[in-house]
């Protein structure tokens, strides 16, 4: 495994130091690319509809939400058309959900490679998260299609730009959160396969505290509201929803200082846990 731009001297020592390892990861960026590329290729190779599934899944969920929530229960979605409203939440949720799920299983499912070849292990969960970004990009096509259909964007305007920026910021927040949580779980999963049982429950719980199906403003109980505010996804979804309808100013949602704190704490915990166990993955996976 000749490291790209390998240092002239490689020193192998018992692992003890805590390093972030982003520098080494940068050296292996091509491997990261190939890992992600492989995941995407393999995922759709045998499916007859291939990449269309990426569009069909959110489309089907959106339809169910519209029928059940908007039509059935008569929930209001403000001045945003119901399909756009729910799809926006679903896109963010799917990005997070797939990212965390794939990343947390990634170390175990690549065990055969880990046991045979050295490379920075962080490549694996990171590529899992990036793979789900690919799905996100594809389903953005659907989202923009809907926006066109409802004449929300017609021509280039500053509102259009605002929406683009809000999606980008939301994407970064979600991917960062998914990467942290997924990486943390993947490291734990190497040692304790219990993660497999905990994960569906965790994901479901998170789904309920993420405003995919509802608007945060309908929550009245203050302490529940606080819990919702801790959730970075909440901020991401609100950010996009705020900027969907033509507006000449960029609208930040109500935000709590807890969002960055939660994101950073998650990240530090994840990297610390991963780094601490990384060296021994090959021995125990």
């Amino acid at each position: 495994m000749s490291a790209p731009e390998a240092p002239f001297e490689i020193i192998i020592k018992p692992k003890s130091v805590f390093t972030l390892g982003w520098k080494e990861l940068w050296q292996y960026r091509e491997l990261l690319y190939f890992f992600t590329w492989k995941e995407i290729k393999v995922r759709y190779k045998q499916a007859a509809l291939g990449i269309l599934w990426t569009l069909l899944q959110p489309l089907a969920m959106m339809t169910i939400f519209v029928l059940l929530l908007a039509q059935g229960m008569g929930l209001k979605t403000g001045n945003i058309p119901a399909p756009v409203y729910y799809l926006c939440g679903l896109l963010i949720w799917n990005l997070f959900n797939h990212g965390v799920t794939h990343a947390s299983q990634s170390m175990v499912s690549n065990a055969n490679i880990i046991k045979k070849i050295y490379f920075p292990r962080l490549v694996i969960p990171l590529s899992a998260v990036l793979t789900s970004s690919f799905d996100f990009m594809i389903s953005l096509v659907l989202f923009y299609g809907l926006l066109l259909y409802y004449s929300i964007i017609n021509s280039f305007s500053v509102a259009w730009l605002h929406l683009g920026i809000s999606i980008l910021i939301a994407y970064i927040i979600v991917i960062f959160t998914a990467f942290s949580l997924g990486t943390f779980l993947s490291a734990i999963n190497v040692k304790y396969r219990d993660v497999r049982y905990v994960l569906p429950f965790l994901i479901q719980t998170l789904f309920f505290i993420t405003p995919v199906m509802y608007d945060t403003s309908i929550i009245k109980q203050p302490w529940i509201k606080t819990i919702l505010e801790l959730n970075p996804l909440n901020f991401a979804i609100d950010l996009i929803r705020n900027n969907i309808i033509n507006s000449s100013t960029f609208l930040w949602p109500e935000w709590s200082f807890w969002v960055p704190v939660v994101i950073i704490l998650l990240y530090i915990t994840a990297i610390y846990t991963f780094r601490k166990t990384e060296a021994y993955f090959a021995d125990i996976v």
Binding site: M1, I117, Y118, A279, Y280
Partner: peptide
């Protein structure tokens, strides 16, 4: 395995 950095000494 140690030489190839798969597992540390």
């Amino acid at each position: 395995k140690i030489l190839s950095r798969i597992t540390p000494p």
